[in-house]
């Protein structure tokens, strides 16, 4: 039960600026995902919130209390580490109870909490084992149970699923989301995996070069990227971009076609459209198919248009051959515009 406020947080490592003036409010019981490529500063931000790293500037507030001068243990947080950090010399029981033991909690209460959280994570039959005897997935469960046993206000997770294989990751993703929703804690989850972010988050903060580029719901981030970076980062494949030449009064020409763009804009813009937001129509862009990839659920066609690569996702029943010219018409309400000078979205 806690709101997290990050105010003007910056972090420098020597000459390297890892974080620039971060401002972010995470609501009580919200599931916030920090998403970005490696080196974007998302882990650094998480470590500043948990207290393993000190911000060069700015403040961190948890539950209405300023915490950036407090030790991690006094912040009401618990953390799940990327490499689990499950102690190899302790049994699963003692691992889950580690934080409770440090608080000098009574044996009965430790036992009650350990058994309850082990039950939640379905590892109650492993309590006497050591971590060397567990699989990666089981170790991950122990790490989550150890965090939940603290009954913290906030759970911080640093790429917790990145060491698991694909199938297990999908299973754990759903399970983790369910368990966290029931525990009523605020969660911050760091990942570079956009599918993980989209599927788990209430809100995603997309980070790039030490800044938060956009913080919004997954569908908003997907549909209305706030910047070119987000448009090119989210979605697989990402959005297509084409040059749009302004003719004034909101009129633009894109690859020889006229479009109505943002009224206010009188300079050239970037025209953007998602690969799946295209229909086949006689008045569409003529695009020459280069590579055709049947992916089962749909057909991914990489074309050349206006001298650039342009991807379209079509129905898997379609018969497309390389060299064939497709007429691709963008759905009008799915077109987005970006200003190349600021790289930001223009409405």
């Amino acid at each position: 039960m806690a709101v997290i406020e990050i105010k003007n947080v910056a972090k420098r490592f020597g000459d390297y600026q890892a974080l620039h003036d971060i401002n972010l409010t995470i609501e009580d019981q919200e599931f916030m995902v920090l998403l970005g490529a490696s080196g974007c500063g998302k882990s650094t931000l998480l470590r500043i919130i948990c207290g393993l790293e000190t911000a060069s500037e700015g403040e961190v507030w948890i539950g209405g209390k300023r915490v950036d001068h407090l030790q991690p243990k006094d912040r009401g947080i618990a953390m799940v580490f990327q490499n689990y950090a499950v102690f190899p010399h302790l049994t699963v029981f003692e691992n889950i109870g580690f934080g409770l033991r440090m608080q000098k909690m009574g044996n009965d209460e430790v036992k009650r909490r350990v058994e309850r959280t082990a039950g939640l994570m379905h590892i109650e039959q492993l309590l006497d084992r050591y971590s060397g005897e567990l699989s990666g997935g089981q170790r991950q469960r122990v790490a989550v149970a150890r965090a939940l046993a603290m009954e913290p206000d906030v759970i911080l997770m640093d790429e917790p699923l990145s060491n698991l294989d694909a199938l297990l990751r999908m299973e754990m993703r759903a399970e983790l989301k369910g368990v966290l929703a029931e525990s009523n804690t605020t969660a911050i989850y760091v990942t570079h995996d956009q599918v993980e972010a989209m599927s788990m988050a209430d809100r995603i903060s997309v980070m790039h070069e030490g800044k938060i580029v956009q913080a919004a719901s997954p569908i908003e981030v997907y549909r209305n990227p706030a910047a070119e970076f987000v448009a090119g980062f989210i979605g697989n494949p990402p959005m297509n971009f084409l040059e749009a030449t302004s003719h004034g009064g909101g009129k633009f020409s894109v690859a020889g076609h006229s479009f109505d763009g943002p009224d206010a804009a009188n300079s050239n813009l970037q025209f953007a459209i998602r690969p799946e937001d295209m229909t086949l129509s006689e008045d569409g862009f003529p695009a020459v198919a280069k590579v055709v990839e049947p992916l089962g659920a749909h057909l991914l066609v990489t074309c050349e248009l206006d001298g650039k690569l342009f991807r379209a996702i079509l129905d898997s029943e379609m018969q497309v051959k390389p060299g064939q010219t497709l007429k691709l018409a963008p759905m009008p309400d799915r077109i987005r515009w970006f200003d190349p000078s600021t790289t930001l979205a223009v409405a």
Binding site: C50, G51, L52, Q71, P72, K73, I77, A78, M79, F81, Q82, N83, A85, F87, P88, H89, L90, F98, G99, M102, Q103, R146, M150
Partner: peptide, 29 residues
């Protein structure tokens, strides 16, 4: 001894002395 164990110890409330007793010593056996 991997650094992550000490970070976990710190986050879960172990004082430097407790980290020495509960993490360093047993893992140094």
């Amino acid at each position: 001894i991997p650094k992550e164990y000490y970070e976990a110890g710190e986050v879960f409330g172990a004082t430097p002395w407790q980290r020495f007793l509960k993490i360093t010593l047993p893992m140094l056996r």
